[in-house]
Design a protein around this nucleic acid. Structure first.
Lengths: 340, 340
DNA sequence: CTTGGCACTCCGACACCCCGAGTGCCAGGG
DNA sequence: CCCTGGCACTCGGGGTGTCGGAGTGCCAAG
């Protein structure tokens, strides 16, 4: 083992010990707990070098070392491998996810499973529906002047919008529009729908154009939003588990999580590593003040027709190999369920 | 003013000061800040009596007094009145709630408005649909062997269930069933539907009974669950605002909030006071370990066709008059929106 | 390059003390 | 009978001081 290799072993040992004990790790305990084959003085030299390289840091003089974000990054990228889940854990996922009644329920169970498994905050994004096809369009007059527009896709997604219309609109006209829309759209892929909508709209009498335009707008809105902007959360209580995890306060973290835009941007920016199948973002890489001490492990899920991301958020000081395994496993499992 | 009346004034003053300063309040500051017309020694006697009655307590000897749960209860019931909202606040509610596209969006905006306004955790339960009527039933074959059942009501609720069916089922049969279900159910009130479902089911050929039974079960399930078991949350970050609010940790509180059953039971047990229009539950009245230091202020909302509850959860040491006003105002506002 | 030794630094725990806020009680006065 | 000013007492919190231990960096020798 070259001295360079040993240095990396030292880094790995520091990360592992620090994650476990949550305390800065010194040269002495390092040689005691890991068979590194050299003395503590040597380790000290290595540590000084690692610190020079910005991979570890001391909270203060005469304290042990703590990994920096860069240290974790190196650890995740090169020093660790995804740790296989235990049979019990796999069984737990399977149990938690069976018997879901609809998509909402699937995602709800998924997010809970993920939170329980990783003991961290879990996020599951609603799957996109861009590749799915229109099954049915329903128009429901509520009170006069209000119309509910419902779009049902063949993948089981249901989008709804309420639109304001002229109170004079007759049920007959609504029925006519419903029939034409279904004739034009049923079976069409969502990405083709926008064009078809405009065609259909042109076929109506001028005096009915207002109604048609409102409905078309609502449908286009439902299509474009794709509900990728929604997600479910679970496990926020885990943030409060150990005050050590977030020295200041979990307040900023909670705020960031509630700010839906932040989480969505974060998930959107992440792309899975081809080999591990997951994506990791650490500390400052989040580019968010409130999340400087947190990391996100996420993975895409779903297949073909609908794709989105799920993941967990926890302290930078997290057990990456295990967390990555859990995220990947849950993503695969839920993909299977949704897929068919 | 009798001495009994003065004692209650003292209690009111203690609650108000304590809520404001978050520090135990002593006899001296009390006479300074409130025109009670007597000396601090007299106040001390009154305080001793209030303590005897269990309405206030000392964190430790030689500290000021703090209201007990019973003290807050008396304050809420007899010593305070709901404080009218400022114009700016009313306008804020109005602004936040306009332009919602569908029910999900309305509730989402509502819960955010409530959290922002009260600076506390807000909960909004999904409205029940028991009194509404069936608008349309849609059956959507997904992959072979799986059928999506969608129930649309005239109040704009959309319920969906996936059912497992015989993969051999033909589209024609599904279409037939869809037509018959709609003929039988459209326009009927949900509480009449269960009986009608059974009738309709009887009219099919024996060999199709399996399919029909599955669909009917799914519809009944959708009806009975009524989605009252769902709610949206916002403002959890407010829990971390002041460490003083929750001396130990907000962990147990977060856990209780995530445990949907707990919140739903809580809301379900609460009934609005006829005069104030809201309901308050304080500390130990919650009957939950994790919520001993929290209170809930809630109110029913909606009208006729759909009714549910919304509210906020915060430290027992909260500004009840203002919070009650905000909850009531938001409840009224969202009722108007949903109502028509 | 590694190692043992050594001097140095600094955090954290503990002990201590003191101050001030707040109380309870009492005797006197309206 | 109730209110009041005075007084002695209690107790928690904050500030200071001290001490020990953990950990480091450096150096000279192997």
């Amino acid at each position: 083992m070259t001295s360079e290799e040993r240095k990396l072993s030292v880094l790995r040992a520091i990360v592992e010990d620090y994650v476990e004990t949550r305390e800065p790790v010194g040269s002495k305990v390092l040689v005691e707990r890991h068979a590194l084959g050299v003395s503590s003085a040597t380790i000290r030299n290595d540590m000084a070098a690692l610190e020079e390289e910005g991979l570890i840091a001391q909270p203060h003089t005469s304290a042990g070392r703590v990994p920096t974000d860069a240290g974790y990054r190196l650890f995740v990228d090169r020093l660790s491998s995804v740790k296989p889940l235990s049979l019990a854990e796999k069984r737990a996922i399977s149990t938690l996810l069976t018997d879901a009644v609809d998509l909402d329920d699937v995602l709800d169970r998924t997010v809970r499973a993920l939170a329980t498994l990783t003991r961290q905050v879990a996020v599951v994004q609603y799957p996109s529906l861009s590749r799915s096809a229109v099954r049915h369009v329903e128009l429901v007059p509520l009170v006069p002047g209000r119309l509910l527009v419902v779009l049902i896709t063949d993948t089981g997604r249901v989008e709804q919008r309420t639109v304001e219309v002229d109170p004079q609109v007759t049920d007959q006209l609504v029925g006519d529009l419903r029939a034409r829309l279904n004739a034009a759209l049923a079976g069409r892929r969502l990405d083709q729908v926008a064009a078809l909508l405009r065609e259909t709209a042109g076929a109506f009498r001028p005096e009915d154009r207002d109604l048609v335009a409102s409905v078309v707008t609502a449908l286009e809105d439902a299509l474009s939003s794709q509900r990728e902007d929604r997600f479910v959360l679970a496990g926020t209580a885990h943030l409060a588990r150990s005050p050590l995890d977030f020295p200041q306060s979990i307040g900023p973290v909670l705020e960031a999580i509630e700010e839906q835009v932040v989480l969505l941007r974060l998930l959107g920016e992440m792309a899975d590593d081809p080999t591990s199948g997951v994506s990791v973002r650490i500390g400052h890489e989040m580019h968010h003040r409130g999340l400087l001490e947190t990391s996100v492990v996420s993975s895409g899920y779903g297949s073909g027709a609908q794709v989105a991301r799920l993941g967990v958020l926890g302290p930078t000081r997290m057990d990456y190999p295990t967390t990555m395994a859990a995220v990947r496993a849950v993503a695969r499992y839920v993909s299977r369920i949704i897929g068919g």
